[in-house]
Each structure stands twice: as C-alpha cells, then as structure tokens.
Computed example of a mutant assay.
Amino acid sequence: MIYLDNSATTQPKKEVLDAFVKASEQFYANPASLHVMGNQAEDLLESARSQLKELLNMDRIVFTSGGTEANNLALIGTAKSYQHRGKHIVTAATEHPSVLNSLAALEQQGFEVTRLPVGHHGEIDVDELKNSLRSDTILVSLMHVNNEIGTIHPISEIARLLKKRRIIFHVDAVQSIGKLAFDPSSMPDLLSVSGHKVHGLKGSGLLAYSGVELQAIQYGGGQESGIRGGTVSVPNAVALAKALRLAKPNPLHLQWNKTLRQFFSEFDGVKIVSPEGAAPHILAVAVKGIKGEILVSGLQKESIIVSTSSACSSKSRDTSHVIQAIGLPREFKDGVMRISFGAFTTEQDISALQSAFQRVYRIIKGV
C-alpha cells in the first residue's frame, strides 16, 4: 500500500521507536519517585523538556496525550485563569473540533465566543479579526495550517497585533510544526503539538507556552508543575523530543503539490479545493457529483491510501464543517478527498497516485 494520508497520522520513524524502546527498557521508573532510578528517569524527562523549550523557543512545556488535550488545556486553562479580565474569546469557524468543542463547553460556563467566518479559500480576514476584538477579549485561538485543506493563517502578523493589545494568542500547530518554518521573533503565547503528526507516537503531545499562567483542568499528584496530574510517560516525552528534532520542511512536497495541481486540473469535473499558497504537504481535491468515500475506496483498490477531507470525526460521513464554511459548490462538497505527504513519501508514490486516479476516474465516469 502507498500511504498518502499523513495529515491523519504518520508512520513513526525508526529513530523515534528506538528512543522510545530504550527509555522504556532502561528508564522505566516513575520520575516522581525519590530513589536513584526515579531521579534518573526525571533527569531524562527534563532533558527532553529542555530540548523542546529550545527547539520551540518557549519558556514552558507541559507534556500531554496529543493535540486534542493540548488544545483543551490551552483554551480552558487560559480562560479560567484570566476570566477576571473578561470572558470574550475569538476563533475561526474552521478550527479543529477539539478547539470548537472546548469553546462550546466554555460558552456553557458564561464565556462568549466569536467564530470568524472564512473566505472561499479558508482564510480569515485580519481586519475582521481586528474589528472583533473588544475590551473584554482575553484569548484568540487559531490553527496555523488547516488540517483539511491546508490554508495557512498569518500567525506572525496576528501575534504582533495581539501582543500590542495584551490579548493571549493560542496556535494549534499540529499540522504545521516540522513542516513550515516559524518566526521565532513573533511566536504565539501558547502552541499545541501532536507527536503522531510528525512521525512520532500516538498518545504523545505537548502544550508549549510563555508569559501565560494556566489553571489546571486535570487533577492528580501535582505533576507537570501542577498543570497536568498523572504519572508522566518519560518514553513518550523522549520519543516526542526525538521526532521534533528530526522533523524539518521537505522542499519536495511543494514540487509534488504543484505537479498534482497541474495533473488534477486537466480532468473535467475535478476542482482543486486547497488554495494556492497552502501548506505544501496537503492537497484537497473534489470530483463533481461523486462522494469522497467512493474515491477513497476506488484508490484503495489500486493500493493507494488517501482520505476524505478529515479523519478526525470517527469516520463520520457528514460534510465537514470546513467544507461547509468555505462554501464549496453543492456538486463538489461531497466529493472531497485529501492527499497528504510525509517523510516517507517518494516520487514513485506520486506517479502511482496519478496512474491510479486515471483508472479510477475512468471507471467512475464510465469513460
């Protein structure tokens, strides 16, 4: 099988697995224990934390189970800590469900949420964002790269804007970390990362932050400076640090993205959904009048693995909120499929996808 669904999850790199196994075998003691083995495990944990602080240019790191938990902690922990300043939060309509559902829960507790609309390419209007800010706005939360269509938000520009107004800025960087470059001079206040999106392990992630105080949303024995209770997985932390040290933008992704854009534009009734200038590792396309599940199934029979626009909703067959928000024409909105590259993608994989799609398209269209 040729795997082109890397925005859903990635194959762990061998170096990451080796780091996890070594830590599991040799540093399995509880890092909170007072004995020598516990101290050794704690030293390794703090070494991983220090590496990540330096890598991300952030002051504090809390290890989490992944991006969803990191987003929950960022939003709920910040909102509760700063509610004395106000209860207004701004986000976009196309955010990940872990953000939208966390904010919906906060609304039930008296917070007010503004969900900015997006254009046909999934982009927010920065001027509209400015106009949405109020004296009681305490937090803005935006993803750097949209997980379904690859739209990139100008987070550096927004970070500078919000810093002047003393408004906290959270960025869901799950789809961008290790794939796009960050401007270290204009980082957000909070940054969510997931290990399994960067050839790390499922069940690993982090929330990085600077200059912000969080209120805990999970209680236990005071681990992670009291922010996240529960025994910390040292092997997961070590593996995550390894994965992020290895992760870097791949210039071939942009080349392949351009090649496939040209390829798909030559088919009648096929629409490129991802905007020009989107993240190079994600390409969403739609076939007129055809359900995305049919495309995914047809390509799978050709040994090509892709997905519909999102794989984060337990195999839901409903049209995603992102596709609805960008106003994709009715005849295309059910036929979206997402192709996403990773570190193990090759030129041969791209050629195989092209050949397979030609065969599937002919069968579906009866030509």
Rank of each mutant, 00 (worst) to 15 (best):
V232C: 07
V238F: 01
T231L: 07
N236P: 02
K248Y: 10
R228M: 10
S225E: 13
T231H: 06
Q223C: 09
G221D: 14
S233K: 09
L246W: 11
L244A: 10
I227V: 13
G229C: 15
S225T: 08
L246C: 10
G221V: 10
S233D: 07
R228Y: 07
G229T: 14
G222Q: 05
V238R: 09
N236I: 02
A239H: 01
V238E: 03
K248R: 13
A241H: 12
P235M: 10
G220Q: 10
G222Y: 11
R228C: 01
V238M: 07
A237M: 07
I217W: 07
L244F: 03
L244K: 02
G230H: 13
V234S: 08
G229W: 14
V234N: 00
T231E: 04
T231A: 08
V234Q: 04
I227T: 04
P249L: 01
E224I: 00
K248N: 00
S225A: 08
L240K: 11
Y219Q: 13
G229A: 14
A243P: 15
A243L: 12
L240S: 08
T231S: 06
I217C: 09
K248Q: 13
S225Q: 12
I217F: 10
N236K: 00
G221Y: 11
V238N: 04
K242Q: 15
V232W: 04
P249S: 11
G226R: 01
L246K: 04
G226A: 04
Y219D: 04
A247Y: 11
S233V: 08
Q218W: 00
G221K: 11
V232T: 15
A237G: 09
G229F: 15
Y219C: 02
A237T: 06
P235L: 01
P235V: 05
I227M: 03
Q223P: 07
R245T: 04
Y219T: 00
K242C: 11
A239G: 08
V238T: 08
L246D: 12
G221M: 12
G222C: 03
V234P: 02
G220F: 14
